[in-house]
Computed example of a mutant assay.
Amino acid sequence: MRRKRSTPWIHRWSRPLMAGIASIGAVVTAYLTYSKLAGNEAACPTGGCDIVLSSPYATVFGQPLALFGFLAYVSMIVFAIAPLLVRSPEQKGLREKLDTWTGLLLFMGATAMMIFSGYLMYLLTAEIKAICVYCVGSAILSTSLFVLAIIGRDWQEVGQLFFTGIIVAVVVLVGTLGVYANINNPSLAEQSASETAGPPITTTSGEAELALATHLQQIGAKMYGAFWCPHCHDQKQLFGQEAFSKIDYVECSPNGQGSPPATACIERGIQGYPTWEIKGQLLQSGTQSLETLANTSGYSGPRNFSNTLPGL
């Protein structure tokens, strides 16, 4: 009698492992999606997260990129657990079919996610020049899903699997380049000044805002930011149009208006936007209340500021 060949442990546990990994990714991307839609800063041990998550690359078709990541992880969870939910012996045939088809879908999905994450890693190092732990973590999760998708089952047609992976990789890479074509297009340098200066400042400046701006100008304070940064726009709104025109503002985005000084942002070690430099010291990145700027800079003028934002 032939001894029945035992099933490798990785084949038995690959789907639960993939479901667990995808669940971690789903929770993280759900949090990032909420933070983006709510306009909140994501908790991050490094300042680079704010730069990355506020960049043009973090929005696709008008929606947060994290939302599409969430949908991808949820899909992987469904593919991973679908055959496991069929427990009845009478439905053995259905379970085998689900196992075969979802196994291929898991491989295709993991391949797509790994390729896209790889491109994001390229953007972090070559274009955005900042590190986001969430993006790096997602790349690790995607790679783990890809490895488990391959070793987690006994593939009969390795050549066909390899061919399928190549097709998926090419489609994802071409699609990604197409989605980000406008951002990477050199013609951005020829965009109108209004487009590269960010949204217009719609608030007016009171006497206190003008006085604070004049004081910051006199002591050589600087604000480092990017035209696409929503927190930078909030900071401008606090000052108002007239007062902010007095602020020494340094544009850090290569595509932004006044971009040549962007090297100053790198040399100064700017990790998030906006970042204020007052008396040679860098404040923690993020929108600062006018009271905070007044206290930090030693301002002694009127403080009846007329412009406010929730939470500041």
Rank of each mutant, 00 (worst) to 15 (best):
S75P: 05
M76R: 05
I77K: 00
V78W: 06
V78A: 12
A80M: 02
I81W: 05
P83F: 02
L85H: 02
V86P: 04
V86A: 06
S88V: 00
P89T: 03
Q91F: 06
Q91E: 09
K92I: 09
G93C: 05
L94R: 13
R95G: 14
L98Q: 08
L98E: 12
D99T: 14
W101P: 03
T102Y: 01
L105E: 01
L106R: 06
F107R: 01
F107Y: 12
F107S: 07
M108P: 03
G109Q: 01
A112C: 04
M114C: 15
G118V: 05
L120S: 05
M121P: 00
Y122D: 02
L123Y: 00
L123P: 02
I128N: 06
I128Y: 10
K129R: 13
K129V: 14
A130W: 06
I131P: 07
V133A: 14
Y134E: 11
Y134D: 07
V136M: 14
S138R: 07
I140H: 04
S142M: 09
T143S: 13
T143A: 12
T143K: 01
S144I: 06
V147K: 05
V147Q: 04
L148H: 02
I150L: 15
I151N: 09
R153K: 12
R153T: 15
W155C: 10
W155V: 13
E157C: 04
G159R: 14
G159L: 14
Q160Y: 09
F162D: 03
F163G: 05
F163R: 14
F163T: 13
F163S: 11
T164A: 15
G165S: 06
G165D: 05
G165P: 05
I166F: 13
I167H: 08
V170Q: 12
V170C: 13
V171M: 04
V171W: 07
V172M: 11
L177T: 10
V179Q: 13
V179R: 05
Y180R: 08
I183R: 07
N184V: 11
P186T: 08
S187H: 14
S187E: 12
S187I: 08
L188I: 13
L188P: 01
A189T: 09
A193Q: 11
A193I: 11
S194M: 01
E195G: 02
E195Q: 15
T196D: 00
T196S: 08
T196Q: 06
A197C: 07
G198C: 02
G198I: 05
P199D: 04
P200E: 12
P200K: 09
T203L: 01
T203A: 07
T203W: 03
T204A: 15
T204D: 14
G206I: 00
E207H: 11
E207F: 07
E207N: 11
A208G: 10
E209A: 08
L210D: 10
A211R: 10
L212N: 03
L212S: 08
T214P: 03
H215P: 10
